[in-house]
Write a protein that binds this DNA or RNA. Structure first.
Lengths: 184, 184
DNA sequence: GAGATATAATTAGGAACCTAACTATATAGG
DNA sequence: CCTATATAGTTAGGTTCCTAATTATATCTC
């Protein structure tokens, strides 16, 4: 009756690109391109987007976002204190983004900011006791969830996947450095 | 000298989560979780985000975004005419998002909207000649780019990767349906 | 030591996608 | 027929992350 129209579910079928589709696209323009390569790249993008969305939903159950959780976890990994610029580097986001993440975490009492005594430009970000408690509380459920995402893969398969994934990542990095960049 | 501070590059090293880091996190809470599973999941998320960003940069060279390109490509796959709701389903995004994508594509003359004669609620989206031309023009470079993202993998490895990726996707889908949902 | 340059964090504004609410049309039941 | 409900598309507003400009401090060079 109520229909509870969860748009996400409806898509799951059609949203996955097929090999036929990739082939058709390539054939249309007579390109010398491996259709399977296109398919793999397309599927990886779809998987990445899917996992990203799933992750946001997962963390929202704890009142966090993916980014804000990663800030807390990274702080925990560095004895509860880091500079915003270090966080930006560890998380792979810009400093501007870190500022925003910390604004909310500070508002919620999970971290605090402190001026550096050494360098007047710096401000330390500190994991509060409440922040540490949040991490403790969510750890079992969070890690179980993370493990479950790759739960359909055997141990050996995970190693293989990790290796292949690493090389794809490397390929993308190489692609981003060289080709489209303006020489300036 | 000039330093050309491209933030993206700096991160590439540190942003990748390591096995040690995953292990430390799990050990801290004495959880019975496979550290490698955590690592694989983390890396997949990082790779997905990276590819997503790379994709936006790639398409911006043609004056498009990833989403808007996908609209054009999907239209081409369906004889140049679709309903917004079909596009939403094929692309795996909401109808609201499709409305926004089409607004811009229409403004740029790459698609047009037409009222349906059958159903007064529907509006067809139509690929214009200019839209088709855009696709033709960017095809060689675009598909070469897409192929290059998986260029470091052999043909056989691509098959394996596709299989493993499929099972991860499946795992995530299952995870999103059942566990955190409120019974309502 | 004073001016040019580099760096740390922030602010302002933009892009992509989301959910929820709204408008208009269609369809089903009494 | 005519009210109740479902559906198509849109609008309004929120989230996440980005780039570019701003402010404040540090460092290098002459």
């Amino acid at each position: 009756m109520c229909m509870n129209n969860n748009n996400r579910k409806i898509n799951d079928m059609e949203a996955i690109p097929s090999l036929v589709q990739s082939k058709r696209q390539i054939d249309r323009y007579n390109l010398d391109i491996d259709a399977q390569a296109i398919l793999v790249a397309s599927r990886l993008m779809a998987a990445g987007a899917q996992l990203g969305q799933a992750s946001e939903i997962h963390f929202s159950r704890f009142g966090l976002s993916t980014g804000r959780y990663r800030v807390l976890a990274d702080l925990e990994d560095y004895e509860g204190e880091e500079l915003p610029s270090q966080l930006a580097e560890h998380l792979g986001v810009t400093r501007a983004t870190v500022t925003g993440l910390i604004d909310i975490l500070e508002r919620d009492g999970l971290v605090s900011r402190r001026l550096s005594s050494k360098d007047g430009r710096q401000k330390s970000v500190i994991l509060t006791e409440e922040g540490a408690k949040k991490l403790r509380e969510m750890a079992p459920e969070h890690f179980a969830w993370l493990e479950a995402t790759v739960g359909l893969l055997s141990i050996d398969e995970r190693s293989v996947f990790l290796d292949l994934l690493g090389r794809v990542t490397q390929g993308i990095s190489a692609l981003m450095d060289e080709p489209g960049s303006k020489p300036k």
